[in-house]
Design a protein around this nucleic acid. Structure first.
Lengths: 220, 220, 220, 220
DNA sequence: CATGAATGAGCATTCATTCAT
DNA sequence: CATGAATGAATGCTCATTCAT
């Protein structure tokens, strides 16, 4: 996670071969520009400007503009995958604790990588059909992971069995993802605090409690 | 009226003012197209096609493409405003109950208006600066309304006072808003069920409970 | 044929609706530009300049640059088809006479439509695969027509049966087609003279004669 | 030689001067690529790929892309010149026999060098003005040679004096050149047969005969 | 109101050519 | 000689917007 969080910052320590660096810089610049202007409105020119090279030169690293977008997805996917693996490997946690840890880690990652994450969650539909399908495939294990935890919590009497695992799973994802839309680096509370409170909110949202308002009957 | 006879087949049952209907159709078509293709990728031509008129004719209703976008925002804002008013006017609810009602009503509205809502939440940044500022201004009362309820709940011992009202307020908005991204009309549970479970999740997320995992200290 | 020949010239007499005219002008301008500069080197800008409109406006008539090319092929094909039909319908000609008529008419057409014909014979491979296949399909009946006449002439003792019908058929096409490369409107003899001599050359090339050099054995 | 050892596998049997071979390979690769894709559509990259070197490395052999084209012209010119010289030096041939020999040798050469010949005849106009003029100058002696033979044949009563020497000269060139467009190495008859029949066709086309259709009067 | 041709600015992409290593 | 990143100009195409009919 630490390595992932560092990705948005400029790397100071580089060895003799600067090539991989270049690639990462290109993707980082694209993430910044796409975040700021939106993928469809951003021009390849603007990405090149951000990098201080000419538009034509950018095409040494990519074949199409969409490649820039897809590489952002690849990078985020890789990081997010490692968060999942890490959370899954922690021992001695009950399902609710594991969900709390998952939410907290993901939120922390999001807040540390706002530009890339914004693109990752906002511009999915700008990918071509094959890549779109690929990314949707990537995301499935996360859905499964979370739903399984929810069901386990329900079976162990920790979570309300009346809640649909798919629905509340999506609510938890909402809690994690939407941070990219409201978090303001300088104005909002510290990432650690936000991550903790999101985790607390998500767990509270599914936990079994005594008193809960029942309103379904009131629907107009 | 006689001169307009040739156009009567298009909408037969219309009162003396035919304009509002036509206007609403235009905005609805725009919402559908912008939802499907994304605002930036959608062309004015496609909206005209959706309406069965020519591109040039569309400019009788609008001055710029952004007008189409903005009218969607106006419509949604109007509806959402009335939901807020309605929820505020219900008597004899404690803060948590009122939050639950608010979430439930909003989610129900979202699920019934997926196209417009998707645009409303997804394309905000495509508005020009003045209109963007206007919409952000519109949204403030909702923030205030929700935060006030949270604080009241905390003061009345119903909600966890350790939670930052702004943060959990955003979490509740996340729960409401994100439905536009995951809800699938035919595959997902009924709107009523989803709305109820989202409300239950949101209230549970802020309600005071005995046991909650405390992880802030574990953050690396 | 007369109508076909007139196509390259500007039409003076036009009715109230100038629309079909516009289309023909576009194709004629494209033919001129592609002839002068070569299809691949010519830019859509240059075609627009030739028409006195803006590049973007040209796209009201076409979807791609290749459309311009293909319409030239369509026009020439239509004309050439009618020449074939006409030659086939003349009564009381022996095979050699019919071949002579065919060559003469085709050459006359070529010389009257140099720009379009140059493109038709020179830029075939610039068409996309489907259109290329289509045009090759169009040309097959001409091959068949000519080969059949050659075989008939051979059977009737008018043409040398030792000649391969496919090979000399191609030689006759060469005689017809290559005119687009060497004919110079002001410097060369009159179209009528050239057409007659090409016909005479082609017929002589296949006709049965007493003395002909036999060199195949000398091949190194 | 030791330093160059790493490249020995590419061409093992080479004398002390490896440069000319390398040069010839470059031109041959260019001819193949230009033949396949067309000069204007072919990229320098593709020629480099064909050679298995990088684009930048190609510029050790050439200064511009057009150089590649011109060298093909130089090579073909050299060969074609030697055919002319050879045909001119054969003793004891009457004009028609010499024309037959010329056609046959040229066609044989064309069929054995389809790629270069296609470029030679197809891409002439892609040369810059000076080189274009140069090549046109090169070709003049061939025109003169052929026309002189035709006129001699006419004077000796071997060829029809009513035919314009320039026109039928071009017809003969057509017969020779057009082979590059219709000859298919595996499907068409043997080069020797084709060359013989082209020669037979060309000579028949100009030879004096009794019966010839006269259609000039029918021209509309 | 409707039409549809025209506008003109902008964009992604290609490519011949250069040059420092 | 070879490399490959960089250049910069050009190109095909799109599209929001206008306007005469």
């Amino acid at each position: 996670m630490a390595a992932a969080g560092a990705r948005d910052r400029e790397d100071a320590e580089r060895g003799p071969r600067a090539r991989p660096r270049r690639e990462a810089e290109v993707v980082a610049a694209a993430a910044r520009v796409f975040h700021e202007r939106g993928y469809a409105d951003a021009s390849v020119q603007e990405v090149a400007d951000e990098l201080g090279i000419l538009k034509g030169s950018l095409y040494h690293y990519i074949r199409t503009k969409e490649d820039l977008l897809f590489r952002i997805f690849q990078d985020v996917h890789r990081d997010v995958e490692s968060i999942l693996a890490e959370v899954a490997s922690v021992a001695d946690l009950d399902p609710l604790e594991r969900i709390a840890l998952y939410v907290q880690r993901q939120v922390l990652y999001n807040l540390a990588n706002l530009a890339r994450i914004s693109v990752y969650y906002h511009e999915l539909r700008r990918l071509g059909p094959e890549r779109l399908a690929l990314v949707l495939e990537w995301r499935k294990p996360h859905n499964e992971f979370l739903r399984r935890l929810i069901r386990e919590a329900q079976e162990q009497g920790l979570a309300d069995p009346a809640q649909d695992a798919a629905v509340v799973g999506n609510c938890i994802f909402a809690t994690i993802i939407w941070t990219y839309r409201w978090y303001r680096p300088r104005r909002s509370p510290s990432p650690a605090l936000v991550a903790a409170q999101c985790a607390r909110y998500a767990v509270g949202g599914i936990a079994l409690q005594g008193q809960t308002p029942q309103q379904e009957g009131q629907t107009p």
